[in-house]
Design a protein around this nucleic acid. Structure first.
Lengths: 259, 259
DNA sequence: CGTCTGGTTGATACGACTCAAATTTGGTGG
DNA sequence: CCACCAAATTTGAGTCGTATCAACCAGACG
């Protein structure tokens, strides 16, 4: 799908990071744009797996950019039920501009060990003041994030367990592919069946049985944190997956950043 | 909750419109700010009930601002299932900045007869260039919209039919209250049981029975498009409704716009 | 090697769906 | 003002998808 990718997660000058790969799905970036992104991502924080990066009720102070590892936004109900409202993979920004709000209305938890860049509001403002192309790309990114959340609403409201899981797997596979972390139908997949249950509104037991069905039907293999989508087209059919909402087809993609 | 409100939906110079009421839940606006909002909302379009304002696949060209009537975003699956992903009430912006995207990934449909302002990207840019306070408020508005969508994900994923419906009713009631269209637990409520079904991922039959339960338990009255929440506190308890996600408690609210 | 987390299986229960029909409401035209 | 029609609401009976509860198993790890 794209360019050279630094699988280690660090942003180096000569190799495309996950963020740049992602933003370049929308528009071409110049060398200066990439350098500015590198610059802004230099404060790195490590979070251990299954720890919170920030919790509901906290005052947001930084914008976070995922460099390596998986995380998720989640919300919890007083009765203990938990919903993963969105997973994060490398290249994802979380909570651009969130410091406008007083308190977090959700938590962000690490799924795996996590490398994130913490960016101050000031750095963020400097970036957008100086790099209009990045500003534009970040706006696009926000709109796509919103579109994904709507698709999740559709997913939970209207699809069966089987379709819902298939849809989730496809979405994650494609998102990983656009940042160079998936190919040939294969990718790392660190979500446990429990996580999948929390993301799809099903129970872990039912996720287990439904995954078995997907395997039995020859659609996927999923074992030891490795996902293999064996037949993407059939998956897309059964999940009624319409990639439009990811808005990866933007014309800006083909523009030259150096005009 | 706020100020003078023009229930007719038009924006007049001396009376607060739904939008200003809403944005003032976040920050104080000056007279010039209000005037600028009036200015930008002067191109009014009328949509008949149950017609689309814009459809999935269309190229977005305007930002829309709801002046009067109800609408909703919805998505449809190839098998005919329909999900309302968010309702719109007066004062709601839809798709701020959406013209960055090539195609709509969802439709917007009128529930009732609708009065909307159509705003061009240029007008929008002029507004944000000249009125930083409004820009800030619009950002807040976008963040709240995103938070609402996440809460809906939680709602569909984790709450029972009974809790889910209660939650939806409370949210709408509060949103109407902040724009001066609800008080004393009462408001117009034009959604049919079919709409409620599409919004909650339930069937119309089950919505019907669940509403009857809510009535029987003395929580609500709902008849002829009029909703009465009889016991908001008990509703909040049963729905596990946490108003944080609406971010109505912002400190900026108490700032003076004329500093 | 024992412990722990995550995955798997079986039996049973229940919340929500389906289908079908009746009833009420609201709007329209004669 | 009434007759009529379509849309929305309500009711009943039967079914199914998913949850629940309770074991059991496998691999990872210290």
């Amino acid at each position: 799908m794209s360019v050279l990718t630094d699988v280690s997660g660090t942003i180096g000058p000569d190799r495309a990071s996950a963020v740049t790969s992602k933003l370049e799905a929308f528009t071409r970036l110049s060398g200066e744009d990439r350098a500015a992104l590198t610059q802004v991502g230099r404060n790195v924080r490590i979070i251990e797996a299954r720890r919170d990066l920030i919790s509901e009720g906290d005052r947001p102070r930084f914008v976070h950019l995922m460099l390596d590892g998986w995380a998720c936004r989640y919300k919890q109900l007083p009765d203990g039920k938990r919903q993963i409202v969105s997973p994060f993979v490398p290249g994802d920004f979380c909570d651009l501009n969130v410091y406008i709000l007083k308190y977090m209305d959700h938590s962000i938890g690490a799924i795996t060990r996590l490398k994130v860049a913490t960016i101050t509001p000031e750095e963020m403002n400097a970036l957008t003041d100086e790099r209009p192309r990045i500003t534009q790309a970040l706006w696009w990114n926000e709109l796509v994030t919103a579109a994904v959340q709507r698709e999740w609403t559709l997913n939970l409201g209207q699809r069966t367990a089987y379709e819902r899981l298939a849809h989730l797997l496809i979405e994650l596979y494609i998102r990983l592919e656009t940042v160079g972390r998936a190919q040939n139908g294969r990718c790392d997949f660190p979500l446990t069946q429990n996580d999948l249950a929390d993301a799809t509104g099903l129970t872990a037991v039912h996720v287990n049985r439904t995954l078995q069905e997907l395997r039995r039907d020859g659609l996927i293999e999923l074992d030891r944190r490795q996902l293999h989508i064996r037949d993407l087209n059939r998956m897309i059919d059964t999940a009624m997956f319409n990639p439009n909402y990811l808005h990866l087809d933007h014309e800006g993609r083909h523009l030259d950043a150096n005009e």
